[in-house]
């Protein structure tokens, strides 16, 4: 009975959603051309950043990204608070079975290249697809691989907090430098350079490197906290 009610109401919801979106149509220009063209041409002519999504996320809506990073920070802090345990109660890591020798050697071999790939992705965030969040996630997957493979591999929690806070302070201080020299928060203060150069786009590269370190440290902290959860 309950399931029937749910199915009927989901069906009605789905029908009306589909009706709305069929009316919109796929692959046609829906929004006014102005906003899109403004972002595209400003990114190309003023900022000289080739990846427009990055220039929107970090420069035009940089304050929003600061809020987003804060939400991620709050999530990782809340996770540590909710899963809090007294120090001598911290259990062994919940690895179900020990990894084989092949997995151990392979993980050791792969780990540096995963970290290198992550660093590449967030350093080149303004030139190619990718950026701080994606690169940070890739680095965290490398740490996840090591933590799942080696039973006694451990990450220093203090060092993670240190990286995280340093990256956050770097982000905010770049914003404050923009505020005091140009008059608005997160204003670009560096020369923009040439299109498709590594050193282009002003502060975008520095901010994305900071975001990459911050996301990598936070995700590694979350993974570490959850993996040490054992009753």
């Amino acid at each position: 009975m309950k399931i029937a009610i749910i199915l009927i109401s989901l069906g009605i919801l789905g029908f009306y959603l589909m009706d709305i979106f069929f009316g919109i149509g796929f692959g046609v220009q829906h929004f006014s051309n102005g906003v899109k063209d403004l972002y595209l041409s400003n990114s190309k002519d003023i900022l000289k950043v080739s990846n427009v999504v990055t220039s929107i996320v970090v420069n035009f809506r940089g304050f929003d990204t600061l809020g987003e990073v804060t939400v991620l920070f709050l999530a990782s802090t809340a996770l540590g608070g909710i899963l809090y345990k007294k120090r001598h109660h911290v259990g062994e890591r919940s690895v179900l079975f020990p990894a084989s020798r092949i997995v151990m050697s392979g993980a050791k071999l792969l780990f540096p290249s995963i970290v290198l790939l992550g660093a590449y992705v967030f350093i080149h965030g303004h030139l190619s697809p990718g950026g701080g969040f994606q690169g940070g996630t890739i680095i965290a997957t490398g740490f996840l691989l090591m933590l799942l493979t080696y039973r006694n591999y451990s990450v220093s929690h203090n060092r993670l907090v240190y990286f995280e806070s340093l990256a956050g302070i770097l982000f905010i201080s770049i914003g404050l430098v923009g505020y005091f020299s140009k008059g608005s928060f997160l204003e670009n203060v560096l020369p923009v350079g040439n299109m498709n150069d590594l050193f282009s786009g002003g502060v975008i590269g520095i901010i994305y490197i900071a975001v990459g370190f911050k996301v990598a440290a936070e995700l590694t902290g979350i993974i570490y906290t959850v993996l040490h959860e054992k009753d």
């Binding site: 692959g27 080739s50 299109m195 498709n196």
Partner: peptide, 9 residues
């Protein structure tokens, strides 16, 4: 339709 990624490579 027939759009490319918003990247000025």
């Amino acid at each position: 339709k027939d759009g490319t990624a918003p990247i000025f490579s």
